[in-house]
Write a protein that binds this DNA or RNA. Structure first.
Lengths: 341, 341
DNA sequence: GTGAAAGCGCTAACAA
DNA sequence: TTGTTAGCGCTTTCAC
């Protein structure tokens, strides 16, 4: 099946290809006689003409595309972010090229390189580390980009992140309201803004709530995973201070906490209360029910796309970062039916 | 930052760009004097030359890319499939362009069109309907493609799918072994191969197990969602036959079944047993524990990519479809700890 | 308001 | 074995 080219449209319309090009582009449409332009458009439509994006991209070095760099799509945190990005971009004719990096810097570097060769106009990164040489490079080259969920120490890179500190404060207040005074924290990796911010907010909260802010009340997990959460919880049970409640750095760590408590014959929430973070999809189904801090995943993606589009439109605009508000989702397993087994 | 072009490499090496092109491509490398080729490669490496994929694609109409068409990435069934596809393609320098269609034919059509314009070399579709005009068109045009998870009535399109019939038989045998004789089925949409195959296998299983294969034992849900599952289950409770066990067409429907049973004050598995299908990620966390049929999601993606690569290498090869074996995952909530609430 | 000409960076047929 | 030529389909400067 042959696909019409601009040249063919031009021939049919009896004009030069350059004129056809002008008529068919919003920007340059005004340069063409209105009637001629209308004729060209009609003929183009009849012939089912659509511009070849490859040829256009080769000529213009643009692509109407952005690169979306995700650590791992099988982490349910990310698909809603992807959807948010896509839903904002699609109506304006942009699309997102998605890549999984598996949190590997080499894969990320190769992906970014590949995207740049394909003339992506900007990036959304969900992979930011606090120290992140690749991001520094891109920032130095003024590459349009927005970070989501996590930030870098380079705070001049625009970002859209959850208000971790406020979320932690809400969770801590909740635990205190339940009567807890002996609370511990399983922190995430400390090379990530989320891991650091939540840990700091935990210690600050202890202090503000009049509880001793002992650093022994924090154990750092080396990744955001159920396994790491279980390992951290075991360490806390073995050699940490007494506690009746755990603030997990995210929901996956909280699942690991459940596993470790279960191994030791401890019950939730009878013996130990657990609070998570993120409210990833399907967290409302787990047992024991998990109270957690909900992050607006979809909106994070959507806002990131909007922010990136702003940067693309006005590259000199002062960088802005968004902090999105969170909500505490209180859940309990003591409903009338499911509790029975 | 300037990026070296082939022309610049050629100038540095003192050869014509065509020679440089030959030297730097595996296929044509042999046409060039070995020493010259080595020199060109060395200089290219020194200059950090990498071929511009856009220019190459414009010239060759190839792209080293395939289109991966997904209904909805937030359905946890799909991310592992995506990973499987990517992991097979990446080592050979191919990549997958992912798009979400939201199950909308117009979005799918536009995405496929866009991919074709970008010279994708083939497609993996996770969106197949039994009747699917777009797939028929592509098949008629001999477009290389592979269907995953679902098939079309055009059985000459290669596919990689779970062995639904075998999975249903395993699940049914399990229920019968537990002593159930009054079993019902919540079927998925009947315009999808998965919905139809599982429903048929359910009826066939009833028959083979010596149970009456009454069609009243099936209710069809109009989408694969928790909401649709709850609605279907309510209808079954209100006007269906007596039953003690439910085979849900997939895990999301099973979650809806839980909701509906809970509303009516029925307990799982005390009053009603439920079996799901797919074993999507995080299903091991739900309560009451869900016994389900596990589909090898990642392998489905990986095999689909391999099959597509075969088709690309030999377009005339007879189409093959793969049926992947499933396993029954038996779970129970009666562990020593979590049962206590 | 329109056309002519050039070229984005690459590869493939043909010629030498 | 290498160079010449042409062109993939488009946009954009310049000239008319």
């Amino acid at each position: 099946m042959h696909r019409a080219t601009l040249r063919e449209v031009a021939v049919m319309a009896g004009v030069h290809p350059a004129t056809a090009s002008r008529a068919l582009n919003r920007q340059t449409e005004g340069l063409v006689n209105a009637e001629t332009a209308a004729r060209i458009k009609r003929i183009a439509a009849e012939m089912g003409y659509t511009p070849n994006p490859i040829a256009r991209s080769l000529k213009t070095s643009r692509s109407a595309s952005i690169g979306l760099v995700i650590p791992d799509l099988t982490n349910p945190l990310f698909p809603p972010i992807v959807r948010g990005v896509e839903d904002v971009l699609r109506p304006i004719g942009y699309n997102a090229w998605i890549v999984n990096t598996d949190s590997r810097p080499d894969v990320e570097k190769a992906a970014v390189e590949s995207f740049r060769q394909r003339n992506v106009e900007g990036f959304v990164f969900a992979t930011a580390h606090l120290k992140h040489p690749l991001l520094d490079e891109l920032a130095a080259a003024s590459t349009p980009m927005v970070l989501v969920n996590r930030r870098s120490t380079r705070t001049d890179i625009p970002s859209v992140t959850p208000d971790d500190a406020a979320g932690v404060a809400m969770a801590m207040q909740h635990l205190v309201d339940l009567g807890h005074t002996k609370i511990v924290h399983l922190a995430g990796p400390q090379d990530l803004s989320t891991g650091v911010n939540r840990r700091r907010a935990f210690l600050a909260s202890l202090d503000e709530l009049g509880l001793p802010a002992e650093s022994s009340r924090v154990i750092i997990c080396d990744e955001w995973s159920e396994q790491a959460g279980a390992k951290g919880m075991r360490a806390m049970l073995d050699s940490g201070p007494d506690f009746t409640a755990v603030l997990a750095g995210n929901d996956l760590l909280a699942l690991g906490v459940y596993d470790a408590l279960s191994e030791r014959g401890l019950r939730c929430p009878d013996d130990i209360s657990v609070v998570g973070f993120n409210d990833i999809p399907f967290m409302d189904k787990v047992f024991p029910a998990l109270t957690t801090v909900r992050i607006p995943h979809y909106e994070i993606g959507a806002e990131a796309a909007r922010l990136l589009l702003e940067v693309l439109r006005d590259p000199n605009r002062h960088p802005r970062s968004l902090l999105l508000p969170l909500t505490l989702v209180v859940r309990s397993s003591t409903g009338p039916v499911r509790a029975g087994n």
